[in-house]
């Protein structure tokens, strides 16, 4: 047992080195010094404000990852998570728009709007789930299609019914009045509420998957659909339910994007956290608690990479290269480990 753990850690460290090594080669190829670049990327994160900025991205990323862990457990590739975040943001914006002129307490309105975002996310996920369960459409294709629909809908709303007075612009809808923003830490862009929602989300998923009968059965569905069915687990209901839960958590991510970050609906409101969340979920291999540091690391890469264009005149998409390489090599290393390690 101990031997396997050490063995696994060894392989993963090796994969980490390899990913950074290849990324360094990419940097060398464009004439940059990898050492300097890593130093600038991570060195820039040393201030309170920067850590807060990382946490601003960490919260929605962690929520999307939390949702994906559930669908992964059910053996589903929920690529539609991006659209579920977007639709969640639309739901939140809708409720804020409807209630912003009402006499209701602003805090209550925010809470309702976040709840609406979760509902909307779940609804969008239910579509992908229904397509899969009743239409026989693979969730990858259904989800991808629904992502495009959600983006198109956002653009329609931003340029159409929800446009700013006299203006139609990519920059989004009119920002909501300040009382409808989640309160921030003094002098930072980070809302404590966003952290609370994210932590509650991941802890919920941790207990769901590790400590409940439901989680166990869900994993059974994911590991062997047919066997689970024969054992009497209501398989399609479990799959649908995993979609709903994932959608609700992604919707919460979208709700945070509106209430804590942008304070309005923008066309790219999901900020790619769904796709990034897929990578985090793959890396942590069902371990919900591991998602907390890994998501933080990925968010830190995103924020740190802003230094590349500023200091080195390099494109910040390098962070995406590094993230992709990490996932690739960790998965490869796991495969290699299983093949190279003699079975006990």
């Amino acid at each position: 047992m101990k031997h396997t753990t050490l063995n696994r850690i060894g392989f993963q460290l090796f994969a980490l080195l390899l990913a950074f090594g290849i990324a360094s080669l990419v940097l060398l190829a464009v004439g940059a010094s990898p050492v300097q670049i890593y130093k600038d990327m991570f060195g820039s994160l040393g201030t309170k404000g920067k850590i807060a900025d990382v946490l601003v991205s960490w919260a929605p990323l962690l929520l999307a990852t939390a949702g994906l862990l559930i669908t992964f457990a059910a053996g589903l590739w929920n690529i539609g998570v991006e659209g579920q975040i977007t639709f969640g943001a639309i739901g939140t914006t809708l409720v804020l728009r409807l209630l912003q002129n009402s006499a209701m307490n602003a805090g209550l309105i925010i809470a309702l709007s976040i709840f609406a975002g979760m509902l909307a996310g779940a609804l969008w996920a239910a579509l992908a789930g229904a397509l899969k369960t009743f239409g026989g459409v693979n969730e990858i294709f259904g989800g991808l299609g629904l992502n495009f629909v959600a983006t198109a809908l956002t653009i329609y709303l931003v340029f159409g019914p929800w446009k700013r007075p006299g203006t139609g612009s990519m920059s989004g809808t009119q920002p909501f009045p300040e009382q409808f923003n989640l309160p921030l830490f003094e002098g930072l862009r980070l809302s404590p509420w966003a952290l609370v929602v994210a932590v509650v989300g991941i802890v919920f998923v941790y207990f769901l998957l590790q400590g409940t009968y439901f989680g166990l059965r869900l994993k059974a569905v994911g590991k062997n659909f047919r066997a689970a069915y024969l054992l009497g687990i209501p398989t399609w209901q479990y799959m649908m339910f995993s979609f709903l839960l994932c959608g609700a958590l992604s919707g919460a991510a979208g709700a945070l994007q509106v209430t804590a970050v942008y304070h309005r609906l923008i066309p790219s409101i999901s900020s790619g956290y769904g796709y990034l969340g897929l990578m985090v979920a793959m890396l942590v291999n069902y371990q919900a608690i591991a998602a907390i540091p890994v998501a933080f690391f990925f968010a830190a890469l995103n924020i740190g990479s802003i230094q590349l264009p500023i200091v080195h005149k390099l494109d910040s998409s390098f962070s995406g290269v590094l993230q992709g390489l990490l996932v690739l090599f960790i998965l490869l290393a796991e495969g290699a480990r299983q093949r190279l390690t003699p079975k006990a």
Partner: peptide, 28 residues
């Protein structure tokens, strides 16, 4: 052969991580 490949990859990493020529970028 797999170990040979892994060793080769490791060498690549080590060479990549060693300090490169001073970059043509201006200090901040």
């Amino acid at each position: 052969t797999r170990f040979a490949f892994l060793a080769l990859a490791l060498m690549l990493v080590i060479s990549a991580c060693s300090p490169a020529a001073p970059a043509a970028t201006e200090p901040p």
